[in-house]
Measured scan of single mutants.
Amino acid sequence: STVKVRLGHLEVTLHNVSEEDVRELRELWKNGADEEDLRRWLEEWKK
């Protein structure tokens, strides 16, 4: 499914993403990950 995730002022649209992935991303964000960390996660996730 396609999910729009809003993290601060960063809005990311993920395609074919699982609930688990979204949860993981939100956890990262809650734990103080900055945009760099999130971008890195997204790069990994896209592979």
Rank of each mutant, 00 (worst) to 15 (best):
L38D: 00
L38M: 06
K46M: 15
S18I: 04
L28N: 02
T2S: 10
G8K: 03
V5R: 00
W45Q: 05
E44M: 07
A33M: 11
H9I: 11
V3T: 03
W29T: 13
E20Q: 13
S1M: 15
L10M: 12
E27H: 07
R6D: 05
V22Q: 09
V12F: 15
W29A: 11
T13Q: 04
E19C: 08
R26P: 00
R6S: 14
R26V: 15
E43V: 09
L14F: 04
L10Q: 11
L14E: 00
N31C: 03
T13D: 03
L28G: 01
K47D: 08
R23Q: 13
S1R: 12
E36F: 07
R39D: 03
L10Y: 13
E24Y: 11
E20L: 06
D37H: 12
R39Q: 09
D34V: 11
E43F: 07
L7V: 14
D37A: 15
R23V: 08
L25M: 04
K30N: 15
E43P: 00
L28T: 02
K47F: 11
T2R: 03
L25D: 00
G32Q: 06
D34Q: 10
S1A: 14
L42Q: 01
K46R: 14
D21W: 12
V22Y: 13
V12L: 12
E24R: 12
G32T: 04
D21Q: 10
V12M: 09
W29K: 07
T2W: 08
W41D: 00
V22M: 12
H15E: 10
K47M: 12
V17Q: 01
V3Q: 02
E36S: 12
R23C: 04
H15W: 09
D37I: 13
E19Y: 08
G8P: 05
R26N: 13
V3D: 01
E19A: 13
R26H: 14
R26S: 11
E11M: 13
V5D: 01
R40N: 12
R39G: 05
T13R: 02
K47R: 10
H9E: 15
N16K: 05
E24H: 10
K30T: 11
D37Q: 14
S18R: 10
K4H: 13
L10C: 09
W41F: 04
E35F: 08
S1L: 15
R40T: 08
S18W: 02
E11G: 02
K46T: 13
N31G: 10
L28V: 04
L10T: 13
D21E: 08
V3I: 13
L14D: 00
L42N: 00
E44F: 06
L42S: 01
G8I: 01
G8D: 06
R26W: 13
L14P: 00
L38E: 01
L14C: 03
V5M: 10
H9K: 15
E43M: 10
E35M: 09
E43L: 07
L14S: 00
W45C: 02
V5K: 00
D21S: 13
A33H: 06
L7A: 02
L25W: 02
S18A: 06
R40P: 01
W41C: 02
D34F: 05
R40E: 09
H15K: 04
E44P: 01
R26F: 13
D21Y: 09
K47Y: 08
K46D: 10
K30Q: 13
